[in-house]
Each structure stands twice: as C-alpha cells, then as structure tokens.
Computed example of a mutant assay.
Amino acid sequence: MEQLGFEFEVQPRRLTKVSPARLATFDDCPRRYRMAYLDRPTPTRTGPWAHSTLGAVVHNALRALFDLPAAKRTPARAAALVSEQWNDAGFADARQAAVYRERAQAWIADYVEHNDVSATPIGLERWVSAPVSAEPGTPASLIIEGRADRIDERGPELAIVDYKTGRRAPDEYEARASQALAIYAVAAERTLRRPCHRVELHHLPTGTIAAAEHTEASLRRHLARAGETAEDLRAATDNLAANGDPQALFPARPSARCGWCDFRPSCAEGQQAAPPTRSWELLAP
C-alpha cells in the first residue's frame, strides 16, 4: 500500500482574520487600530456618540421587527419598537433625544409603509465567515468575517442589506464601492452556499435604496484590496509582538476625523490635529 507523505518542514500558511471594521480602521489610522484591537488595557476612550446611539436603535428596532410574524410588521409596531429600544446616550439633553426619537419613529414607520417587509430574511445580524484568497488560483490567505445587517433571499440568490442613518443619502457608486458590503456578499455566499452579488444601502432618513450588482471581477477587486491591507496589518502586528516600536509600526494619521475619534483622549497627535467634536454634532440636521 502506498504511504501518504507529509512535509513536516513546511509550515501551513497562517490565515489573517479580518472584518470590514478592522480593515477600515487600519486604513484610516493604524494608531487607532492598535488602540482598539491590540493595546491592553484599552486606552481611555471618549463617551458615547449620539449618532451611534441613533444608528444602533434603528438597527435593533428593524431586527426586532423582522423577528415578528409578517402580519405584525406594521408601521405602528415599527415605531413602537424604536421607543422600546431607545436610550439617550450621547445626546445633548433629553429634549434633543426626544426630537431624534420621534424622527427615528417616523423613519422606520415610513420604511415599513413603503417597502415590502412580508418576507422573512434568511439572516438578521447574521455572522458570516469564509477563508478566501486575494488572488485567483492561490491558496487562501485570509479569513473574512463580519455581521451583516440583513441577508435576503431574492429568487435563487442572496442580497446583502445594510441600514444607514447618516447625514447623506447613498448612491449606487457608494454601494458598489463599499468594501464591507462586498466582503459580506462573498462571506454570505460561502457560508450559506447560495450565489450573492446584489448589495443594498437602505437610508432610513430619506427612504433611499442604493443598490449595486457585483460581478465576480468586482468582488475579486475588493478581496485583492482587503488582502493588501491584511498583509500590512499582519506584518505590523507580528513586528509589534516581536518588541517592535508601536509608534513606528502603527503611526497616527492626523486628519479632521481626529475631532471625533474614540481614542482622542489617548492620542496627543489627534488632539493637535482637530478641535474636539461634541457628542451630538455628527447627527443629521
């Protein structure tokens, strides 16, 4: 009988695990990445942000809505779910919080009124993960993973839905250019074993739905870009573990965003780059 041979000298390639949030954080500012994911204890952060609270409430209310039987997914019930999920963290005061609570109730009620919400999604806040290669025909080099807001069945294929509550309505270009949506599409296809090319941004304040249909080539381009960032991220992390200089390996990238960075209290460069943003100033007007 022929014996199986093993190359004990050859070490298996270590896969870098990345999420859209990790990739975006490292691309924006390696210093913030180090503080968020590597430094222990975690450096001092700012308090809660009102726009983040608002977004979380809307996401949680929509998830709760789709957990209900289809007949109970009414505009009135959707608005009530906003109140049930609400908290005032980050708002200037109770009066401002009440204004935005009413706005969020109107947004979600209108969304239910003008969109078909009768179908039950295949995934709600669904965690998807898959090993992938950054280049065609090569072994897997990274594991992409993340939590998709919603995964719908659209005929034989899947569609990724991401909710937005920001100042500006998205367009098709933004949907197509979103690395996060592309990663969710690839990971969902591998996890759920169904084709997935359609991605959608649902902007609750305006009712805008910005959609794009990916091709295999466009998804591959997103994976290639993710692979490049993952390689840089892994190299910096490995060198840090080998007692490399954290300031040199994870440099700050000062910009206007430093005004609302979570780690502004722990970053001297960020404090010098921009004045502090108050916790409610990023809310849509």
Rank of each mutant, 00 (worst) to 15 (best):
L192M: 14
R253G: 04
G270Y: 08
T165N: 08
E200V: 07
A182M: 07
E216Y: 02
A252M: 05
A182T: 03
G244K: 09
T165S: 07
L181K: 06
E174Q: 15
R167E: 13
N243T: 12
W280A: 10
L192K: 05
W280G: 09
L158V: 07
D245W: 13
A185W: 07
A248T: 11
L233V: 10
S218T: 15
E281T: 03
T237H: 13
E269P: 10
D245M: 13
R154A: 07
K164V: 02
Q272N: 12
C258L: 11
I209H: 10
A159C: 04
T229N: 03
E153A: 14
L219E: 09
K164R: 05
A169V: 06
W260L: 03
A268H: 05
A224C: 00
L233G: 06
V161K: 01
A268Y: 00
A274Q: 09
A159P: 01
P205G: 02
R278S: 10
P205Q: 08
A182L: 06
S218G: 07
R194A: 07
W280C: 06
A256I: 13
Q271P: 05
D262Q: 13
R176G: 12
Q272E: 14
F263T: 10
P276V: 01
A236M: 11
A188T: 12
R190Y: 06
N239R: 15
T208P: 02
P276H: 01
L249H: 07
R190E: 12
S218A: 04
C196E: 01
L204G: 00
P170F: 04
H214Q: 11
D262C: 00
A210I: 01
S218E: 11
R190Q: 14
R150H: 08
T215R: 10
A224K: 14
P246T: 02
N239I: 01
P265H: 08
F250S: 05
A210H: 08
G244N: 09
V186F: 04
T208D: 06
A175V: 01
N243F: 12
R257T: 12
G207F: 02
G244S: 07
A252E: 13
T229W: 06
D152I: 02
T206R: 02
A177P: 00
C261K: 00
N239E: 15
P156R: 09
Y184N: 10
A273P: 06
E213Q: 15
L219V: 08
A211T: 15
S255C: 13
A180L: 02
T206W: 03
A217N: 07
A236G: 09
A241T: 12
W280Y: 14
P195L: 01
L204D: 00
L240Y: 15
A235H: 11
C258D: 03
H222W: 01
R167L: 11
E153S: 12
C267W: 05
D238A: 14
E281Q: 15
Q271V: 07
A185H: 05
F250L: 08
T191A: 12
V186D: 06
A274T: 06
A188K: 02
E281K: 12
L158M: 10
E269M: 11
P156E: 11
Y173F: 08
E157N: 13
L181D: 04
S266A: 15
H203I: 06
E172T: 14
F250E: 02
A187M: 08
W280T: 09
A211M: 13
E269C: 01
Q272S: 14
R221T: 12
Y173T: 09
A175M: 05
P246Q: 02
R176P: 00
D232K: 14
S218H: 09
E281A: 14
Y173R: 12
A180R: 13
P195K: 01
D232Q: 15
